[in-house]
């Protein structure tokens, strides 16, 4: 009988109040709004949603959002791993400042990041001018600019998921590997990397989920040309401004479906990594 009960008996006070506040606020702030979106989607119908999404402009925007997010997240996967390793294992002047600065993209409002990156990477900006004059490379107002903005936004995720795992690594495992004759590179590749893989994938998925929906930091640097540099969230805003609610809902649902799959993937990765590492 007990296994069927929703809650095991407990003398601890405050169940009704805490559970009530949690469910009420969750419903009002998160579930009702998202539920409204889903209901509206059901009302529009799958066929019509497909019809709206399967147009050149929407397809281009969705493809751009996911392509740029993937490129930025993969860049951050490699760079974040190096960054986390350097911060945990090496000692150098200014390390603490760098460690604190990693979270800047979390703390700095996206609109501020957007105009700041544009100021630097615009053709007349500090870095933009150099890249333009020496390599003929335009960054701002091209897809390259979107990559830069998304790399900025996703930078902390991989570092912050991998860093604690590197701290936990038992040095004796590395010593054992070295005693058995493995070179340092081989130890890193065959011993360390597999231990970090679950955390790396989690960080990658988090960075991806964040980048796909990112709006504030991208729209300033992107140029926002339809079919070229127009991201999916911007197209939702444009549809809303045209009072084309169905159009906005269809694009949002397409994005939400993909985001939800990512959340599911994160959970599956966590289950898999726990089993693999043999922890509870």
């Amino acid at each position: 009988m007990r296994a069927l009960a929703f809650r095991s008996p407990s003398p601890m006070p405050g169940w009704g109040l805490s559970f009530g506040v949690m469910v009420l606020m969750l419903s009002l702030i998160v579930l009702m709004p998202i539920g409204t979106l889903l209901l509206r989607g059901a009302h529009i119908g799958l066929g019509e949603i497909w019809h709206i999404v399967n147009t050149e402009r929407v397809r281009a925007a969705l493809a751009l959002s996911f392509r740029a997010s993937l490129i930025a997240a993969l860049f951050n996967l490699v760079f974040g791993l190096i960054l986390a390793w350097v911060l945990v294992r090496y000692h150098f002047w200014g390390k603490r400042i760098i460690d604190a600065a990693i979270d800047l993209p979390f703390a700095l409002p996206t609109a501020v990041a957007g105009i700041a990156l544009t100021a630097i990477y615009a053709p007349n900006g500090a870095f933009g001018a150099i890249l333009m004059n020496t390599f003929g490379l335009r960054v701002a107002y091209t897809e390259l600019g979107i990559w830069i903005a998304l790399i900025f936004v996703g930078l902390p995720f991989v570092v912050r998921t991998v860093q604690p795992v590197i701290e936990e690594i038992d040095r004796e495992i590395e010593e054992a590997s070295a005693t058995l004759g493995a070179s340092r590179m081989r130890t890193l590749r065959k011993v360390i990397l597999p231990m970090l893989t679950p955390a790396l994938l989690t960080g990658l998925a988090l960075a991806l989920a964040r980048s796909v929906g990112e709006y504030g930091s991208v729209i300033f640097i992107a140029g926002n040309l339809p079919l070229q540099t127009e991201i999916a969230p911007l197209l939702i805003v444009i549809r809303l401004e045209e009072f084309d609610y169905n159009g906005a809902v269809a694009i949002a649902l397409a994005m939400l479906a993909i985001s939800f799959l990512m959340l599911l993937a994160i959970n599956l990765i966590q289950v898999w990594s726990r089993r693999r590492m043999g922890a509870a």
Binding site: I34, T36, L37, A209, Y215, V237, Y245, M255, S259
Partner: peptide, 19 residues
């Protein structure tokens, strides 16, 4: 469910409230 807002685009969140 509590984590859900982290994986919803801010723009989509705004759209939900408009609806």
């Amino acid at each position: 469910l509590i984590d859900l807002p982290f994986s919803v685009s801010p723009v989509v969140a705004g759209l939900c409230f408009v609806l």
